[in-house]
Simulated assay, not measured.
Amino acid sequence: MSLADFWSKVFVFDRYGELLELLSQSIIAGAVLGLIGGVVGLFVMLRRHAFAVHAIAEMSFAGAALFLLLGYNVVTGSLIGSIFSALIIALMGAKVHENDSIIGALMPFGLGLGILFLSLYSGRSANKFSLLTGQIVAVDSAQLTSMVVGGAVIITALALMWRPLMFASLDPVVAQAKGLPLRLLSVAFMVVLGIATALSVQVVGSLLVLALLITPAASALQVTASPLRALILSVLFAEVAMVGGILLALAGSLPISPYVTTLSFLIFVMCRGIRAVRQRYSASGRKRSEPGLEK
């Protein structure tokens, strides 16, 4: 494939205005998922649950594949798989090493089940592919409504437990000493994470959900230590990656996931660069201020 052929697949702006109007629901869905991913992702990073997101996504994929095979609603299957795996991780992984063991067992199990169900499915191959890499053009009014409702549930739940969950995430030892119900908070958050993962899988696919639920928050934490500023930046980065990825995907013939993941990664690299520059200037400033170094 020549370079011209490659770019013709990545960016094709013919009838772009018509596509924007036709797929306006998909853009709104992307904005909703950006908000969800930015907020949930911050707690994922603070609680060190990045590994868990991958396991939940694999089980979400397995649930969606099973329901696709049986002819039921794929979104429902994805949601059941996500919440089921999230509860297993929360209830059985009381300690860090136990948590990692359970997650490590769930990931290949979920992926294997998903591959099994898809291999038995005799329908359209596009349906199989979309479970893995996402399909933004498939968002209809019913899916958009479910995303908005799910997003409202997630944001409301996190708002209600914001202070104790933030305390437990930043300093679990002191939080336990203060009498906070750490197990209950963990279960509640994992259910929220399961719902967020199931909603995200519909658009970006199970293999690339990390770009929405991890990378934006990880980027934000590179440039600020303030939870509030990190939350704002995480949502902003997630919106840029999701909405920007959708707008770019409408101009090409590729799935949405490469655009979203590329934008998300570029933002992370930029934030890492900002952090490196700050650390360099901070180190040079400390050296100049040390006694005996000034001439």
Rank of each mutant, 00 (worst) to 15 (best):
V75A: 13
G93K: 07
G71L: 09
G34Y: 05
I80T: 08
M45E: 11
L68P: 06
L42V: 12
F51W: 13
I102S: 05
F43V: 09
A50F: 04
L113C: 14
F67I: 08
A57W: 02
L87W: 08
S60E: 05
I102L: 12
V32L: 11
A90C: 13
M107R: 09
V39D: 00
L87P: 03
M45F: 11
L116N: 00
L42Q: 09
P108R: 08
P108L: 03
H49E: 15
A105W: 04
R47M: 12
I36D: 01
A105M: 15
L118T: 04
L116M: 14
G114I: 08
L91H: 09
T76G: 00
G34R: 01
R47S: 12
T76Y: 11
N99K: 14
D100R: 10
F84T: 11
I36F: 02
L35R: 02
S78A: 15
G81I: 02
L70C: 10
F43I: 09
L118R: 02
V40D: 01
A29E: 04
M59R: 00
A64F: 06
T76W: 11
L118I: 13
L113S: 06
A64K: 01
V74P: 00
R47V: 11
V75S: 10
G77A: 08
S60N: 00
G71N: 10
H97S: 15
I56Q: 05
E98I: 08
H54L: 10
L106F: 12
G37I: 05
V44R: 00
M45N: 06
M92S: 14
F61L: 13
V53Y: 04
M92C: 12
I80K: 00
A50M: 08
G93F: 02
I83H: 01
N73K: 06
N99W: 07
S82N: 05
A94P: 00
S119L: 12
L42A: 10
L33D: 03
A55F: 01
S82L: 10
M92V: 15
I89P: 01
N99E: 15
E58I: 08
F84W: 07
L42E: 05
V74Y: 04
V32R: 01
Y72W: 15
G63S: 08
I102P: 00
S24I: 14
F43E: 06
A105F: 13
G81W: 01
A52E: 09
N99C: 08
G63I: 02
H49M: 15
L106K: 05
G104M: 12
